[in-house]
Computed example of a mutant assay.
Amino acid sequence: MCLKIGILRLSNVAKMVAHKFTVDLNKPLVFQVGHLGESYQEWVHQPIVSKEGPRFFDSDFWEFLTRTAWWAIPTIWLPVVCWCISMSVRMGHTLPQTALMVAFGIFLWTFVEYVLHRFLFHIETKSYWGNTIHYLLHGCHHKHPMDGLRLVFPPAAAAILCIPFWNLIKFCATPSTTPALFGGGLLGYVMYDVTHYYLHHGQPTNQVPKSLKKYHLNHHFRIQNKGFGITSAFWDRVFGTLPQTKAADRAR
C-alpha cells in the first residue's frame, strides 16, 4: 500500500514538473518540447506569427537538413516525375492512357495528403518522444506557421518515404502502370507542397486561391481540428471535417 502511494506521488510530481516546464525559445527547441508532457498540445497550438524560424538543433548539420527553400521541391522532384511518366510511355502505353494514370495518381495523392494530415500530423501526444517526433513532423509548423524554410517537406525525408509508396503501388499495379501512377502521385505531392507554401506567403488575387488561403489559415488560427485538406476541401466534405463558417458558429 505504501509503495502504491509512493508511486502515485512520484507520478503527480512528474506531471507537475512537466506542466511547469517552460520552453526557452532562444535555445534549440526539438529536445525541449518533449518535457512539456500533457501541456504540449496546448503549447504547440498557440502560434507565433513570425517569418523568423526557431533553431531546432545544436548541430549545424541536422539544422541544415530541417530547412528547405520552396523552389527546391519542383527543382528536385519534377525531373523524377517526368522520368517515371516516360517509363510507362516507353513500356507501350499511349499518351492518353498515361495521362489518365497520372491523373489517377494525383487523385490518390489528395487522399494520402488528407489521411496523413488528419491522422498522423494531428495525432495527440504527451510522452517525451511522442511530443518530440510530432513537433518535428508537424507541430513546428503549427507553432511557427510563417517559417518559410520549414513549410515544405525536406527532400531527404521525402526520398525515404518514396520507397514504401513505390513498393505499395508496385504491389497493386502492373509493371508498366506503376511508374506513371507513382509519377502522378509524386506530381500531386509537388503541387501540394508548392500550394502549401503559397497559401502562407502568397498574396492571391483570384477567387480560387483566395478561398484556399482563407480555408487553410482558418485551420491554423481558428479551428485546428478540422479543415485538413490543403489543395482542396474535397476529402473534408467526404469525411465530415469541413469547418463551419463563422456565421454558422454564431447561429449556434
Score class of each variant (00 low, 15 high):
residue 79 P to L: 10
residue 132 T to F: 03
residue 163 I to T: 06
residue 173 A to N: 03
residue 121 F to K: 03
residue 93 H to G: 02
residue 113 E to G: 02
residue 44 V to Q: 11
residue 239 F to W: 13
residue 17 V to S: 07
residue 161 L to K: 04
residue 28 P to V: 04
residue 63 E to R: 06
residue 238 V to F: 05
residue 110 T to R: 12
residue 128 Y to V: 08
residue 3 L to V: 14
residue 234 F to P: 00
residue 156 A to F: 12
residue 199 L to W: 08
residue 245 T to R: 06
residue 137 L to W: 11
residue 113 E to C: 04
residue 184 G to D: 05
residue 16 M to C: 06
residue 140 C to E: 05
residue 15 K to V: 10
residue 25 L to F: 12
residue 124 E to W: 04
residue 171 F to Y: 14
residue 209 P to A: 06
residue 68 T to C: 07
residue 123 I to S: 09
residue 140 C to F: 02
residue 58 D to H: 14
residue 96 P to D: 07
residue 147 D to V: 06
residue 247 A to E: 14
residue 239 F to C: 08
residue 144 H to W: 15
residue 44 V to P: 06
residue 145 P to F: 03
residue 39 S to E: 14
residue 198 Y to E: 12
residue 197 Y to W: 15
residue 215 Y to V: 02
residue 248 A to L: 10
residue 224 Q to I: 02
residue 248 A to M: 10
residue 211 S to T: 09
residue 114 Y to R: 03
residue 189 Y to N: 08
residue 20 K to M: 10
residue 151 L to R: 00
residue 142 H to R: 10
residue 177 T to A: 13
residue 124 E to I: 09
residue 37 G to K: 07
residue 47 P to I: 11
residue 214 K to F: 02
residue 7 I to N: 09
residue 167 N to Q: 13
residue 154 P to Q: 02
residue 184 G to K: 01
residue 139 G to N: 07
residue 234 F to K: 01
residue 225 N to H: 12
residue 13 V to C: 06
residue 219 H to S: 06
residue 89 V to Y: 13
residue 210 K to A: 08
residue 34 G to Q: 01
residue 191 M to Q: 09
residue 10 L to T: 01
residue 72 A to I: 09
residue 38 E to S: 13
residue 135 Y to N: 01
residue 176 S to R: 02
residue 193 D to M: 11
residue 39 S to N: 14
residue 216 H to F: 08
residue 242 L to M: 15
residue 235 W to N: 02
